[in-house]
Every structure is written in structure tokens, then in C-alpha cells.
Design a protein around this nucleic acid. Sequence first.
DNA 1: TATTGTTATACTCTATAACTATA
DNA 2: TATAGTTATAGAGTATAACAATA
Lengths: 139, 139
Amino acid sequence: MSARPDQITEELADLVFQVAERLRGGFHAAAAEMDLPPAQALLLIRLSEPHPMRALADMLGCDASNVTGIVDGLERRGLAVRRPSPDDRRVKHVVLTEEGERRRAALRERSTAEAAVLFDLPGGRRDLLRELLGEVAAR
Amino acid sequence: MSARPDQITEELADLVFQVAERLRGGFHAAAAEMDLPPAQALLLIRLSEPHPMRALADMLGCDASNVTGIVDGLERRGLAVRRPSPDDRRVKHVVLTEEGERRRAALRERSTAEAAVLFDLPGGRRDLLRELLGEVAAR
DNA sequence: TATTGTTATACTCTATAACTATA
DNA sequence: TATAGTTATAGAGTATAACAATA
């Protein structure tokens, strides 16, 4: 039953990677069902409200030059539009269309439903897991 | 304190991604310090014993054609060699050299040390986290 | 016929550098 | 001078298809 601390650490890291991989697979599958490339799906989820391109790059943790193409894709599908900022004429805000809002809600529902199955632990063990992961993430 | 089940699910998924990203960053940093590209480092870790190329592709969850280049890299660095299988002349086993074994041990130590800090929870909470993640991963 | 490992190739994702229009 | 967004481009990582050797 007992194990070296290092072995427990390796097991924990393995488990986190396994679960993350499953979550990622589920999200990509949900996106594919809705005919969305992963990058566009990821951005769609974050567009709960309008944001400048630059802010989106920060949220995604990628270079600003990448965001151009991703937003191009969302615009081509009629899910988002670029709107010039009234405050700063250099800035463009990315705003979801009505269809974009619908797709965002649908994507969230599907991906969350998949994740819910994975995290369906009995009783309070679910909240306990959230608490422990929260402690780890807070370091 | 209470929240919709869906919200807890989204939080859990976010937390898992956050922790996985931190672990990945730590591993890549450890690999970079040892002058190893991530793909070679990942393969090195799995070479606890000789394996055919094909088996390595399965372990990494990628196409067999990718493994050729990764093993080429390890061979160029003198960390591994291809050894023809005595049982099946189509098969090549990838075997670590002595230097490869040393590098593998060092890489494991470094990356585990980083992960250990992250998972340093008080008392039995560490084992509890392992148990809960194990349940989730087992679905 | 099927499989192992390799090559050539293409597609995606991501980063850098240079450009424009603003500030 | 510095910043927002775009473009062109290059580098990783990964996949498919075709091939030689072997089963």
C-alpha cells in the first residue's frame, strides 16, 4: 500500500496527464461534431463577452499573430465579427453574432456533458477533488 | 458555497488543464536544461527497457513514422542505439546506452522534483488526491 | 497477404520579423 | 517611441501514402 514519495509524485503526474488527455479528446470531439477546428472552438468558449484581439492572444497564451487566422475562421463561419473600438482606433473588438452565441452555448453544453461523466464521483468526493486540485493549482 | 453541478465540472476541467500545463512546463524546462527536445525527452523516459520502434509509437500514441526521427535524435546524442531483434528480422529494439541510462535517471529526478513541489499537500491529502484521480482516470 | 521500419510529403500549430495605422 | 493588428515565413509536431525487407 505504501510507496516512496517520488513514486506517488510520478503516479500523480501520470494521472493528471491521463485525465487532461481525456478531457482534451472529449472537447475536440465535441468541436468536430459541430464542424469547428480546435483552435476556433477554444476561442469561441472564451468569447463570453467582446475582447480586443490582443486580450484574446493573452487568454490563449499564444502570439497575437495567431489570433488573426482564428478570428478569420470564426468570421467566415458567421460566428463572430470584428468591431472597431470607439476608444482606440487601433483596437478591434471581437464580438459573437447571435449564431455565434448559440454555437458557443451548444459547444459548452456538449463538452461539459462529456466532462461531467468523467468527474461523476459519488457523494462529496467530487467537491473534495475540486478542493485538492485547487490547492495544487494555487501553488 | 454550493454551485451548479455543471459549474463544478467546468471548474474541475479547468483545474486539471492548469495543473497539466504546469507539469508539462516543468518537464520541458527540465528537458531543455539537459539540452533535450521535448519529444526525445518523452521517449527517453519510457525507455526503462528495450522496446521495438512499433511499441514506442503505441506508447507515445503517435504514428510509427514519427518515431524514426526521434530515435535518430537519441542516437545522434549517443543516448540510444537500434539493435536488430534476434526473433524477427524486421524488428529493431531501441536500447539505451550507459550515457542514456544516466541521462534518463537525471531527467526523471529533475522533473519529479519539480512535480513534487506542486503535489506537496499536507498529511494524507496527497494520497487522497491520488485515489480520487485514480477513480476518475479509471472510467 | 500482413507487418516493421523508413522516406517523402503535407497539414496544423506556433513563433518571429517586418509592415501599417494609430497612440 | 510604443502598441494593435496584419502578413509572410519558418520551425516544430503529427498524419498519410508508398516502399523494401521480412513474416
